[in-house]
Design a protein around this nucleic acid. Structure first.
Length: 137
DNA sequence: GCCAACGTTGGC
DNA sequence: GCCAACGTTGGC
């Protein structure tokens, strides 16, 4: 099982909207970036991911699970764009902010810190454990 | 609202 | 195949 991070602008798709979808989940659609798409193609059902709010929040707010492998993105006519389906698993008891993440030496190598523009990215098991602990899980 | 970083496009 | 121009993202 691998770990990931999914970034979303809360105005476009928020954690609350994800939670409202329940176990049915929702397509992680709209990604139009090859690197991000390629990561989604590597995902398998059961993989876990952080749900990160960019812009106004700039914080990891919840955990999602991949429930369907990569398939064509229904919001694109172009067959090159694939996406996975994810469902909400649980909210972070305390959101972990970008500021807190940046303040830690042991998270300095996170893609979130090094390449802030990538919207779907891998997370190492070590990073996963640290952020879960910071978030009160 | 600004700007840096990055990805994409298109002319050559 | 290179690179300049342009558009977008996201932190500040």
């Amino acid at each position: 099982m691998r770990y990931w991070l999914f970034k979303s602008e809360p105005d476009a798709w928020s954690w609350d909207q994800q939670v409202a979808k329940g176990d049915t989940g929702e397509e992680w659609s709209g990604v139009r970036n090859y690197q991000a798409r390629n990561f989604m193609r590597e995902m398998e059902p059961g993989d876990r991911g952080f749900f990160y709010h960019s812009q106004t929040d700039k914080a990891v707010v919840g955990i999602v699970e991949v429930i369907a492998p990569a398939h064509p993105d229904s919001t694109s006519d172009n067959p090159r764009w694939d996406c996975v389906d994810v469902k909400a698993v649980e909210a972070m008891p305390r959101p972990v902010t970008l500021e807190e993440i940046k303040a830690r030496d042991d998270l300095a190598e996170m893609v979130l810190v090094r390449n802030s523009r990538l919207s779907v990215q891998p997370v190492t098991p070590e990073e996963w454990a640290i952020i879960c602990e910071m978030g009160g899980l």
